[in-house]
Amino acid sequence: MPTPTKAFPPLTLVLAATPSLGIGQGGTLPWPQLKKEMGYFARVTKRVSEGGRRINAVVMGRKTWDSIPEKFRPLKGRLNVVITRTPEELSRSLGMKGGGDKEVEVEGPIVAESVMAALERLRAFDHTAEEEREEESRGKIHRVFVIGGASVYHAALELPQAERVLLTKIKKEYDCDTFFGVDLDREGSGWVRRSRGELEEWTGESVQEGGLEQEGVGFEFGMYERVR
């Protein structure tokens, strides 16, 4: 009898949004750079459980990839996955930049044409890592984070694997041309907000009650889970 396939880690969406669910303007964030929020994002998406070599994956659209300054991509300490309708074009572009060194092999990017295709690529990566567990450059997938943009969030929310949303609530309105598609706080949305303690336990972060303020912008970290 074949060995049952281990269930793949669920998807966690990570985003920041205004009260009207605005998440972007002109391909960038409309609010000032919030270093504390950026630090939180980096730590949470990098952090893995103790024991064994593991790595988290961050799944993003091509526009989100392009919005990251070139010197910072791929995002360090995470396996980067880029969704694009023209995967061959992006793969050729990355190949011209010498994407074969050891660090890029670990962090990617992996290129896929849809979120489902990305999950299949990650399953293949995870299986290969299990077979080659002695190889220093590979790590098993621990968590999978979806980090934007709007169309990738939308596609991820359609999948049963989407189980969690880490939402930074920006407590001020800004002009936005891109919005998150679900009001998680709306009754009947299919999502429930978890307590600060549950957020801290899952992320490994100490979260200040009532939120933080930086650059004149108040913001608060929260976690939502899908109602099953």
Rank of each mutant, 00 (worst) to 15 (best):
E200A: 03
S206R: 15
E158W: 00
L157Q: 04
R194F: 08
K169P: 00
E163T: 11
Y174H: 05
V165G: 01
F179L: 08
L212V: 07
S195V: 07
E187C: 03
D183Q: 05
E187Q: 12
K172Q: 15
R186V: 09
E205A: 01
Q208G: 08
E209C: 05
E201P: 10
E187S: 10
L167Q: 05
Q161Y: 04
T203W: 13
W202L: 13
A162W: 06
D175R: 14
L212S: 13
W202E: 15
W202N: 03
D175Q: 11
G190F: 12
P160C: 10
L157S: 07
W191P: 09
G211V: 06
S195I: 00
K171G: 08
L199E: 11
E205V: 02
W202Y: 10
S206N: 12
V165C: 00
S206M: 10
E198K: 12
L184I: 09
S189A: 14
E158S: 15
V182D: 08
A162F: 06
R186L: 11
E158C: 14
E198Q: 13
R196A: 09
V207A: 05
S195G: 11
V207W: 13
D185S: 14
S206L: 14
V207R: 02
L212W: 15
A162Q: 09
R186S: 10
E209W: 06
L199S: 10
V192F: 12
D175L: 09
E187V: 08
Q208E: 09
E209G: 03
T168W: 10
V182H: 06
S206V: 15
R164Y: 01
W202H: 01
W191L: 04
P160A: 14
G210K: 07
E209A: 12
L166P: 04
I170P: 05
A162K: 04
T203G: 08
G188T: 09
D175E: 15
K169F: 00
